[in-house]
């Protein structure tokens, strides 16, 4: 086994209207990996494939050195998974559901489960059919956290939550992620939270990986650059430059300064160059909104 907790290589899956991949993704051991991307980018499809829901057309997925199909049971003993789409209603009561899930995991920690139920204000006596989306999401997280899995896969853990609950979930998740040697993939639109605590970011768009790396390196690699250019097309039609706005000869673009240093912009005729730092959200908005070539 190497230093990567999760390795996805050449993953492909075709649907009638969507194609995922070919996709390569690498999650280092012990990292918190933020999976981001616009809606319908393929994040959930990828995580579903990882969890054995559906067969890939090609490629491989390895988790802690285990093949996700061949060693499925062994893998699932180490991987906690939570998705807002899980339907629990057939267990009727929260308590019954917990009893059922508990049976699968020798490492189930009942006192931790009780603590999470209290912290998240989920009542074990409640009926599953009437739970709000927010409470269902919280319940899914409790079930995934309570047995201390080595790997956590969280698909949109804050969807449908108000600002207070969102903050609380992130705080609890962060505590859980931080206290143990654990690898986490978290797909989320909470970009400012991810920028803070995700060690790595992977951005997916149209089924392909657009960007992957250490969060701080990604954020520092991009700058929002204002400049004046009579003929901006020479500058803008390049890899790593994404035009945001143009008024007369004033342009604003998101620039990957690793690929296009500011000197190279100047050399190609840009004047009055002013570069400002960006947030992960700025990068996301620029790259997600960019039309495909």
């Amino acid at each position: 086994m190497n230093d990567n907790a999760i390795e996805i290589r050449g993953l492909k899956k075709s649907f009638a209207r969507f194609q995922l991949g070919p996709l390569d993704l690498t999650v280092p051991q012990g990292a918190i990996y933020g999976l981001i991307g616009p809606n319908a980018a393929g994040k959930t499809t990828m995580l579903d494939l990882l969890m054995g829901m559906g067969d890939p057309d090609a490629g491989s997925i390895t988790v802690l050195g285990l093949d996700h199909r061949r060693d499925e049971v062994a893998m699932k003993r180490q991987v906690g998974y939570a998705s807002p789409e899980t339907d629990y209603r057939s267990w009727v009561k929260v308590k019954k559901l917990i009893q059922f899930v508990r049976g699968f995991y020798p490492t189930w920690d009942e006192s931790y489960c009780q603590k999470l139920l209290r912290d998240f204000r989920v009542n074990p006596a409640d009926s599953l059919t009437t739970l709000s989306l927010g409470t269902r999401v919280k319940l899914g997280l409790i079930l995934a956290l309570a047995w201390h899995p080595k790997v956590l896969i969280l698909d949109e853990p804050t969807v449908g939550l108000d600002a207070v609950s969102k903050k609380q979930i992130f705080a609890e998740l962060f505590a859980a992620m931080n206290q143990e040697e654990r690898t986490v993939i978290i797909s989320s639109h909470g970009l400012s939270e991810l920028e803070r605590f995700a060690d790595c970011i992977g951005m997916i768009k149209d089924g392909r990986l657009l960007l992957e790396g250490a969060t701080d390196e990604i954020v520092e690699r991009y700058k929002m650059v204002d400049f004046v250019a009579e003929n901006e097309t020479v500058l803008v039609r390049r890899e790593g430059i994404c035009l945001q706005k143009r008024e007369g000869d004033h342009c604003r673009a998101l620039v990957d300064i690793q690929r296009n240093g500011l000197e190279s912009l100047a050399a190609r005729g840009a004047r009055q160059i002013l570069a400002t730092p960006v947030t992960l959200e700025d990068i996301f908005v620029a790259l997600a909104g960019e039309a495909n070539p």
Binding site: F170, F174, A175, N178, Q179, E193, R196, F197, A198, D216
Partner: peptide
């Protein structure tokens, strides 16, 4: 590292740096 990362809700790597 861990304490401050937890308090600020930032990655341990950020605190280390």
């Amino acid at each position: 590292f861990r304490q401050l990362a937890g308090d600020l809700m930032v990655s341990v790597i950020t605190v280390k740096r």
